[in-house]
Design a protein around this nucleic acid. Structure first.
Length: 271
DNA sequence: ATGTAATGGGGAT
DNA sequence: TCCCCCTTACATA
């Protein structure tokens, strides 16, 4: 499920299964019938991801733009494709595989100019080689907004979601309520470098693991605990449980209508 | 059977 | 700040 690492994996999956092939596109659900018709039979030239946005570039310069939101998901399988089950917004069929898309926030066909507009409103993506963390720092270093909110703003940084933002702030020992302008350049560099590390690992293993070797269940002689999302984390959704490092109960608050988790012991307020 | 939360984001107010 | 969209999975009754 979808933070940036998931979308980059999906881009790689599409490239591997459909890259260079003429792809049949349909919308069994019907809600994307016209878009599917525009794409049907075109060759997938380039599958790319920027933050949480999947961009499938077809020949004739049309791009399929998919944003999963919270609920959207892709399912893949080998041909022959079975009859669609449930609400399949888009089905792609290539040489040996099919892909079913359900519940996306966005599924649309974009012209080149529209793709540029989309990319221009996204901040640097820690998973992209062309990312420039300085662009994010220009925003952060002037903002009164809490760093936890800035890290969820896709125009500041593209890709991290609620898990990565909580976990990277924990790992760097930074109070999530600290205004952006009160971060040091060194702290931002550390956050960025850690995001690059964590998210690349997330792409590799397909889940979010943020617990360092010295704090794993084996290293600490505690029972293993994996979050519903499938990975092992320090603070995300661990409200009230003892911090894995210092034992302080993990704090939680709703910030900008999202749940935020942090350890008051390891991420002290600098005030 | 019903309720609710969830890794997201856009738009109105 | 609230409201709305999209869908599923788990909890509670």
């Amino acid at each position: 499920m979808p933070e940036g690492h998931t979308i980059h994996r999906l881009a790689a999956d599409h490239q591997r299964m459909f890259g260079g092939l003429a792809v049949a596109a349909t919308s069994p659900q019907g809600r994307f019938a016209e878009g599917a018709r525009r794409l049907d039979g075109r060759v997938l030239a380039d599958a790319d991801a920027h933050g949480k946005h999947l961009l499938l570039g077809f020949d004739d310069e049309l791009t399929l733009h998919v944003h999963l939101g919270i609920y959207g998901r892709f399912g893949f399988g080998a041909l022959p494709a079975p009859d669609p089950v449930g609400l399949v917004r888009l089905r792609l069929v290539g040489g040996e595989h099919f892909a079913d898309l359900r519940g996306p926030n966005t599924c649309e066909v974009l012209e080149p100019g529209e793709v540029k507009l989309l990319r221009d409103r996204l901040g640097p993506d820690p998973l992209r080689a062309d990312a420039d963390p300085e662009l994010a720092w220009r925003r952060i270093s002037r903002a009164r907004t809490p760093i936890a909110v800035l890290l969820m703003d896709q125009s500041v940084v593209a890709g991290p979601g609620n898990i990565y933002r909580a976990e990277v702030l924990f790992r760097q020992g930074i109070d999530p309520r600290l205004p952006g302008r009160r971060l040091s350049a060194g702290q931002w560099a550390a956050i960025w470098d850690d995001l690059v590390l964590l998210m690349a690992e997330g792409v590799r293993v397909g889940r979010i693991d943020t617990v360092r070797p010295e704090h794993t269940p084996e290293a600490m002689g505690r029972p293993p605990r994996v979050d519903d999302h499938g990975g092992e984390v320090y603070v995300y959704r661990r409200a009230g449980l003892p911090c894995l490092v210092c034992g302080t109960p993990v704090a939680a608050a709703e910030v900008a209508s999202r749940n935020l988790f942090w350890c008051p012991g390891c991420q002290p307020s600098p005030v």
